[in-house]
Design a protein around this nucleic acid. Structure first.
Lengths: 155, 155
DNA sequence: GTAAAACTATCTTCCGATAGGTAGGGTCTA
DNA sequence: TAGACCCTACCTATCGGAAGATAGTTTTAC
């Protein structure tokens, strides 16, 4: 996705995109930041009543991206490319993962799960990795399997 | 990494690289294929005597890439970029993941672990995702945490 | 009238790819 | 055994295009 492609999609000229986002790094950072913000908003909507339903809702956030948009988590892509990406983009990506782990950690702790932080990290990694494996294999069932197996690890 | 960059590293001209790998797709496929072959060779060396030691050796294969080369699994990168990559590259990437799951499935089955296939998928996804999260966060400990948590899920 | 936001036009750099040539080594045959 | 031939692996040179970015100008909205 070049400046010209993006400009074309929006309906303006590439020079106008540069007006809002001077460099590619600025554009990338804004993209990840917006993605993280929207994800955070979805997290805040999740009802943390029972552990199981909360986890299901959490997984559904990932699953939706995989199924509907036929793409994968933006931060999985950015994270995989972290080497060679600008530092400001990487720090936003890191912040996204931190946010996810923190949310899960809080949820698990609240439900008296042992080693909450470790399991939170496992779930995030498994879901991100699961999206990649499923996407590369063109088989969404692989993601569902991973998500189920990850949930089965809790308790 | 362009044809010119690669040619420069090898010490020849980019046209000569095109002689061996006519298109970028050919080059990418060969790269992933070689990576998978080498990984397979390492898998074959693993002593599957005890489950724990075998799993440790398996995780070490990933960990080594993360620590020594200061990079991550090639197939994590290719898988994350699967959308937009040539089909021949994607099928090699898929084959790599299949191979990993099959190896773990056999190991777990051999050790009478229930839901071996599901857990094999979980481990692969967790390790691939763990590398990405750790790389993006520039914190190798995150990967080690994930690897430990994944192993703790077995049995 | 001013400031934001779009535009035109252009520059430089890099990319993947191709055409065509060259040097060296091996092979077949009269 | 000498010449004709061919294959491999590199080379030089170049093409068309796309990319990121900038300078300067015009339009639009309040």
């Amino acid at each position: 996705m070049s400046f010209r492609d993006l400009a074309n999609d929006v309906g303006i000229k590439s020079a106008s995109v540069h007006y809002h986002f001077p460099t590619k790094a600025d554009l990338g950072e804004a993209l990840v930041a917006r993605y993280a913000d929207r994800f955070k908003a979805e997290l805040d909507k999740i009802e943390t009543g029972t552990l199981e339903s909360a986890l299901n809702a959490y997984v559904a956030l990932y699953s939706r991206a995989l199924v509907l948009n036929e793409s994968i988590c933006l931060c999985a892509i950015m994270g995989a490319e972290a080497i060679g990406l600008p530092e400001n983009v990487n720090s936003r990506t890191k912040a996204f993962f931190d946010m996810n782990r923190a949310w899960l950690d809080a949820l698990l702790t609240q439900n008296n799960i042992r080693s909450a932080a470790d399991k939170a990290g496992l779930i995030v990694s498994a879901l991100e990795g699961g999206m990649i494996v499923a996407s590369a294999s063109n088989d969404r069932k692989l993601f569902d399997q991973v998500a189920e197996a990850a949930k089965a690890c809790i308790s």
